[in-house]
Design a protein around this nucleic acid. Sequence first.
DNA 1: TAGTGGTCTAGACCACGCA
DNA 2: GCGTGGTCTAGACCACTAC
Lengths: 234, 234
Amino acid sequence: MPKPLYLQIRETLLARMADGTFRPGQPLPSEFALAKELDVSQGTVRKALDTLANDNLVMRRQGLGTFVPETTTERALFQFFRLTGTNGESLIPEPVSEEISRRPAPKRIAQRLEISTSAPAVRIRRVRALNGVTSTLEDVWLDPKHLPLPADGQPLPNALYTHYQRSYSVSIVRAEDFISAVAAPDHVAEAIGIPVGGPVLLVRRDAFDLSGRLAETRESYFRTDGFGYSVTLR
Amino acid sequence: MPKPLYLQIRETLLARMADGTFRPGQPLPSEFALAKELDVSQGTVRKALDTLANDNLVMRRQGLGTFVPETTTERALFQFFRLTGTNGESLIPEPVSEEISRRPAPKRIAQRLEISTSAPAVRIRRVRALNGVTSTLEDVWLDPKHLPLPADGQPLPNALYTHYQRSYSVSIVRAEDFISAVAAPDHVAEAIGIPVGGPVLLVRRDAFDLSGRLAETRESYFRTDGFGYSVTLR
DNA sequence: TAGTGGTCTAGACCACGCA
DNA sequence: GCGTGGTCTAGACCACTAC
């Protein structure tokens, strides 16, 4: 019992995005061109493209074409940065400091990255501000075999996802967040200017690329006076 | 410049769900029947139904029909209860205590419900347990003109949304959560057995019905040792 | 067997962006 | 004016459910 045609087409198109045949920012061939090449009707190609557009995996613009989305800074912020002000206004994080190191990952991180605790992993520790107030410390962990990351000392873009895509052709398309409240550890409290043990939001995030592979895992601490994590369920 | 036909059909069908012409648990007329009645092609009705199904506003089952979803307990838990264990397992809240009262709402609540701070509102204060551990206290606030709610002393179902639908034909279809970390206030700490001032997750939720109207607002405190709020972004 | 939604096709016309 | 995606239609056949 094979999958429906349009889902097979979807997989084909996704594979071409993952392997670089279709590149971010570039248009896909037109519906008719794809239909002819893949030997199905234009309506079936359309249905495949519709499901992809629905998952934010392509962007369609009438009169222009169907595009592989670029992980622009705006897009990364809009799609994946869920912190808003108390009234729902969006916020833009401003860099305060960052530090890249290579070190063995703690067990819980190593497990998520599926690497050994003795192998060195890349850790990016960033402190950022919201509305001018230093309010977040986050540790991003990467498997260097997958995302080697730049030499130390080189400044990172504010939006890492943009950088993954441009430098390594890794497009982040899905993130799973696990949110809890914890007492601020010493280094967090110091970095973001709150009392040790004060309540902070801890967001553990696993981010996945086009092929469904885990690309990074991060742990972000936020002070939440004046803002919070917003999400809509339907 | 009128809306596309299929969106007009969508609105028509939504209106019929909101006004009770189509009732929860009941099937809609078939695609062909709707097409004939509304004088459009079956494909257009299908497209309207597809968008509704995509938003979880109808449920389609091949060979059976298209149904107005019932807010079953399972559905309410699956769709709107985002607390999971550390490894992502779903959790089922068990009632510990509840107390219904009518009282003026604090200003921030009154503003969200769009009622006056002097008018009495309904407050449901519930304490619930997860995995046998008392871990959440939540205050649900209602506008009695919209959802009068049962006489005191009468037990409430564990899932309020089910009750709203059965007793008042109010179907909750969308919720907006705003999540922060706070120091546990006295009454929360006492209720869920943690130290006063310890970190707890505070989830403020606005829940909306089929017609887009705010049906309730709630503030839930959770201790997050052993579980957390899970969400997937794409 | 009858009726439902699911897939697939084919073709017409519209709205938009651009040269 | 041309090519793109967006809407709408019509009809064929498949897969599932109920009786």
